[in-house]
Design a protein around this nucleic acid. Structure first.
Length: 236
RNA sequence: GUUAAAGUCACAC
């Protein structure tokens, strides 16, 4: 089981949904009984290729997955990726035990679907329930803020990220902060964040660059290219 | 004396 699952997982990880499912079928054909982890990986694969309600039904049927937070989180993700946000919310509501990751999945679901307000509502709910945001929470929520220009909320989230030291731990957090401020047109704040970071990734500069471009500030956008060069960062 | 496969992910395009 484990080695078959490892292969399925590998395919799923690289968005090769079809192969993952093919492999899963082959495994069944060989008479191997899938474990909870196998189902989880197959589900992940499903998310990339389309709605597979059969998979959900299968999971509900197999008692070993009765109240698994992991597997239900994957289901939340799967429904969201298939465009069925209502089903995603339903599955989330069915969780007996929530954790940061399942909250993150729900937040990401709303952001992806273009419901940024709802995503931020989720963020606040999660906070209210006493969960600590991690860098994924921060990334998804900041994206939501940028989408709708929620600068106050964005600033709150910024504080939270600093309090938890997430800016140092995950370079993507810095880029998403810069992106959020840029989208809101708060370039001074974007620069403040940028200057405080010791490592400046290409993503960071891209975020600022595209922010300027979006706001029609072409000269400043082009200046970013020069800054990148000074920083020794290759544009991609 | 507990070592295998597992859930959520930013910028840009």
């Amino acid at each position: 089981v484990v080695s078959w699952t490892a292969v399925v997982s590998g395919y799923a990880e690289h968005d090769c949904g079809e192969q993952a499912i093919e492999c899963f079928n082959e495994m069944l054909y060989e008479g191997i009984t899938p474990s909870a982890v196998t189902f989880l990986c197959v589900l992940k694969a499903c998310a990339s290729i389309g709605p597979l309600a059969e998979m959900h039904a299968e999971i509900e049927r197999s008692s070993l997955l009765d109240r698994g937070t992991c597997i239900r989180t994957t289901l939340v993700d799967m429904y969201a990726k298939c465009g069925s946000i209502a089903r995603a919310q339903e599955v989330f509501d069915s969780l007996d035990v929530r954790d940061v990751v399942s909250w993150n999945a729900l937040i990401a679901a709303y952001v992806d679907a273009g419901f940024s307000e709802e995503a931020l509502d989720c963020y606040e709910c999660m906070h209210g329930e006493g969960f600590c945001p991690d860098s994924v929470t921060i990334l998804c929520s900041l994206k939501a803020c940028g989408n709708i220009g929620a600068e106050n909320m964005g600033t709150d989230i910024h504080c939270e990220a600093e309090r938890r030291g997430l800016l140092e731990r995950d370079f993507a957090v810095g880029a998403s902060l810069v992106g959020m401020y840029s989208k809101c047109g708060l370039f001074t704040k974007a620069w403040e964040v940028l200057e405080k970071l010791s490592v400046r990734s290409v993503a960071l500069w891209n975020a600022l660059f595209s922010g300027y471009a979006e706001h029609g500030r072409c000269e400043e956008a082009l200046m970013c290219l020069e800054h990148m060069e000074v920083d020794g960062v290759q544009p991609n």
